[in-house]
Amino acid sequence: MMEKMIFGRYVPIPSVIHKMDPRSKLIIIFLFVAIIFLANNWITYALIALYTFFMLGLSKVPFRFLYGGLKPVIWLVLFTFLLQLFFTKGGNLVFDWGPIEIYEEGIRMGLFISLRFFFLILITSLLTLTTTPIEITDGLETLLTPLKKLRFPVHEMALMMSISLRFIPTLMQETDKIMKAQIARGVEFASGPIKERIKAVIPLLIPLFVSSFKRAEELAIAMEARGYRGGEGRTKYRQLSWRMIDTLQVGLLVILTILLIIFRS
């Protein structure tokens, strides 16, 4: 039952986007989040849409996986749309029914803001769909390296992230096992009033905590025994390689930025 939760993330297929350096992907995402606010008319939104769908196409990620990422936020998008629709005034009155008044500007703003949301979600989920969590960690670590000068613990953060990623499946298996053991002892996780259900979680959580602490302790010992003494003087096995495609992709985004600046009103 636990296995279902993890997939829907990384989709291992060969595509240009998958092969890109996580650093370029992260740079593109950050830039994209910024420049999407430049769009303010139909032509600029059309450019953004064109770019987004072009990237989706390159990634070859099947639509249902994208939909999986959209599903949880679709209500939020709808809500923002309605909010803008009813409360933005300006332009011609299009619809008038008692207290409800809808203006031209309301429709425009509603559409624009929900589209902005929509594209943001698509592009960011494209990152997680085409990049393994460990690649993202590596990318972040390298990009954040300058922060080391400010005594920000970049290496430690990255190590923590990669160890957490490593142990997620292990903890999932463990949760499943303890859950079954407690069900066999008469605990009902899935039914009963909410108070009972919260109580039922305790026999699951405590053993999980206890075993996680034990794991953490043993892991620390094992790491020490293998000569780990902090980030200093360490070399790195995992390597990132910036290729032509990465430069091209960043270039493409720069062109998009320029176009947006030219065509925005």
Binding site: E218, L219, Y228, T235, Y237, Q239
Partner: peptide, 29 residues
């Protein structure tokens, strides 16, 4: 080599785990 196979596996993949000790020693890539 410790008792619990899971609690000494540091890397996210086999190659990363084997490399962990080497990284600690500062061995060139």
């Amino acid at each position: 080599v410790f008792q619990n196979p899971d609690n000494q596996f540091v890397g996210t993949t086999v190659e990363d785990d084997v490399a962990f000790g080497l990284e600690n020693m500062g061995i060139p890539r």
